[in-house]
Amino acid sequence: MAYRNGNYSAFYVAEPFSESSLGANATKDFVSYNLLRAWRANDTTFPFIDSHQKNYNVRDGSDWEKTLKPRLHDRLNNSKNIILFLSSVTKNSRALREEIDYGINTDGLPVIVVYPEYSEKSDIYENSSIKQEIKDLWDKLPIFRNSMDDVPTIHIPFKKELIKKALEDTDFMVSTKGEAKAYFYK
Rank of each mutant, 00 (worst) to 15 (best):
G23Y: 03
I143M: 09
K159G: 03
Y115R: 06
K135R: 14
R40V: 04
T90M: 09
S9M: 05
G178C: 04
R94T: 15
A180K: 04
Y3K: 13
F144D: 02
I143S: 12
A182Q: 09
K121H: 07
D43S: 09
A166T: 03
E168S: 15
K80R: 13
S18A: 12
N78K: 15
V151E: 03
E98V: 10
S32M: 01
T44C: 08
T106F: 08
Y183H: 01
K131T: 08
Q132N: 13
L162P: 00
G108S: 10
K131H: 09
I100Q: 06
T27H: 13
M173G: 02
F172C: 04
K177C: 02
N42F: 09
L86M: 07
D43K: 06
K164G: 05
N81E: 07
E65Q: 14
L36C: 01
I112Q: 01
P142V: 08
L162N: 01
L162T: 01
F172S: 02
W64Y: 14
L86Q: 06
M1R: 10
L86A: 05
T106Q: 13
I104R: 06
L141Q: 12
D123L: 09
P110V: 09
V174S: 02
W39Y: 13
F184M: 00
S122L: 14
D149L: 12
V31G: 05
S62V: 08
N92R: 12
D63G: 08
L109V: 09
I104F: 08
P152W: 02
R94C: 10
T45I: 08
S129E: 11
S147H: 05
S20R: 06
V111T: 11
S21H: 12
L141T: 12
N55S: 15
S122K: 15
S9E: 05
L35G: 01
Y3F: 15
N146R: 12
P116C: 08
E15A: 09
F30T: 02
G178Q: 04
P142Y: 09
A10I: 05
I154Q: 02
I82E: 02
Y8C: 06
R71Q: 13
I49Y: 14
N78M: 12
R71A: 13
D123K: 06
L167F: 07
R4Y: 06
P116H: 07
R75F: 05
N81S: 11
S129F: 01
K28M: 10
R71W: 10
M1N: 10
Y125N: 03
N127L: 08
L96M: 15
D29A: 04
V113D: 03
V114M: 06
T106Y: 11
T176P: 02
L141G: 04
F48E: 03
N7Q: 06
N146D: 15
S51L: 06
T153D: 01
L162D: 00
V151D: 02
T176K: 06
F30D: 00
F48W: 05
Y185T: 00
N57G: 14
Y185S: 00
L137P: 03
Q53Y: 09
I82V: 11
E161R: 11
A10P: 02
Y115L: 14
Y102A: 08
S32L: 00
A24P: 04
V31H: 03
K160Y: 08
K186P: 00
W64N: 11
